[in-house]
C-alpha cells in the first residue's frame, strides 16, 4: 500500500524588509505588503523538506509513498508548486482564491479539510505550525478538528515505520517525545532543525518541473463556516529595538573593566 502524504503550505512576505514608513495599517486592518518579495513560510518550508526526507527514507526501505502539495491562493504560489514538481512531488494543487485569507485560520482549515475529504486518499497531513503573517498557530489544529483526525504539534522529525504507521519526534515541555503513531493524522511542524527546502537541479526542473499544476476553484471546496472565530481589533508593529552603548577604552582590558564596574558589578 502506498502512503499518501499531503503537505499544506503558504508563501509569506519577507516582513523584515518592510521599513517603519511602510508599516501602515490600512482600512480593514490590513498592511500592504504587495511590494515585498515573498518566500515560503518557514514552518511550511520545514514541512515540505521533512516530507521529502520521509519519502526518500520510506522508499529506501521499500515502503512506497506519494507526495502531494497544496496551497490556497493566487498565481504567485505557482513558482513554489513548480519547484515542488521538480523535486518530484507526485502532485501539486493550488486552490485558487483571491480572498485575503490572512488572520482567518478557520476558513483556510475548512477549505483544506473539504479538499482532503473529497480526495479521500491522504494518510498524513503535514503543515507548518503557523504562518509569518498572522501567527495565530490555529490552522493545523482546526484542520485536525474538522477532519476528526488526531494531531501532533511541535513535530521536529518523522520517519517511516510500517505501511500504516510512522515514527514521530516532537517537542513537549522542553523535552523530545518519540512516538510510533498510526495514520491518519495531522502533523504540525514546529522548530525543526530541518529548515530549508532542497533545490532541484536544472535537469530535474526540465524533466519534472514542467508538469501541470492542478488548479481548483474554492467553490469546489465550499468553505462557508460559522462566523470568524477571531476578529482583529488592532494591528501594531512590535518595537524590537534595543538600546546600545559603545564602551570606549584603549584596550580590551580597559573596556572589560568599565563594563564590569559600570554595568555588571551592581547586578551581581
Amino acid at each position: 500500500m502506498i502512503m499518501n502524504i499531503l503537505v499544506c503550505f503558504n508563501a509569506v512576505p519577507k516582513l523584515n524588509i518592510l521599513s517603519d514608513t511602510d508599516w501602515v495599517v490600512q482600512e480593514g486592518l490590513k498592511i500592504d505588503t504587495s511590494f515585498v518579495q515573498k518566500d515560503l513560510n518557514p514552518f511550511d518550508e520545514s514541512a515540505l523538506e521533512i516530507a521529502l526526507r520521509f519519502s526518500d527514507h520510506s522508499k529506501s526501505l521499500g515502503l512506497p509513498c506519494s507526495l502531494t502539495a497544496v496551497a490556497v491562493g493566487e498565481e504567485h504560489l505557482d513558482r513554489y508548486l513548480k519547484k515542488l514538481l521538480a523535486l518530484k512531488f507526485d502532485n501539486v494543487v493550488r486552490i485558487h482564491s483571491s480572498e485575503d485569507l490572512r488572520f482567518i485560520p478557520e476558513t483556510i482549515a475548512h477549505i483544506l479539510s473539504n479538499f482532503i475529504s473529497k480526495q479521500d486518499c491522504f494518510d498524513i497531513i503535514i503543515t507548518g505550525q503557523q504562518s509569518g503573517e498572522g501567527d495565530n498557530a490555529m490552522t493545523p489544529l482546526l484542520l485536525s478538528e474538522y477532519l476528526h483526525w488526531p494531531c501532533i504539534s511541535q513535530v521536529v522529525e518523522i520517519g517511516p515505520d510500517t505501511e500504516r504507521s510512522l515514527a514521530v519526534k516532537s517537542e513537549i515541555d522542553g523535552a523530545i517525545l518519540n512516538q510510533k503513531v498510526k495514520t491518519p493524522l495531522v502533523l504540525s511542524i514546529g522548530n525543526s532543525p530541518c529548515s530549508y527546502l532542497r533545490n532541484p537541479t536544472l535537469k530535474d526542473i526540465a524533466e519534472f518541473g514542467k508538469r501541470d499544476i492542478k488548479i481548483h476553484t474554492p467553490k469546489a471546496f465550499s468553505h462557508k463556516t460559522d462566523k470568524n472565530i477571531f476578529n482583529i481589533k488592532s494591528l501594531k508593529k512590535i518595537d524590537n529595538s534595543r538600546q546600545g552603548i559603545i564602551i570606549e577604552g584603549d584596550t580590551p582590558e580597559d573596556k572589560a573593566k568599565i563594563l564590569y564596574e559600570s554595568y555588571i558589578k551592581e547586578k551581581l
Partner: peptide
C-alpha cells in the same frame, strides 16, 4: 517595488551567518 529592493541591497554579517547555515544544511 524597486525602491523597496533598493533599500535592502547590501549584505551584512547576519547574511553571512545565514548563508553558512543554509550551505551546511542544504549542501548547496
Amino acid at each position: 517595488l524597486i525602491e523597496t529592493w533598493f533599500n535592502n541591497l547590501n549584505w551584512d554579517p547576519n547574511d553571512l551567518v545565514e548563508e553558512r547555515r543554509e550551505t551546511i544544511e542544504m549542501n548547496n
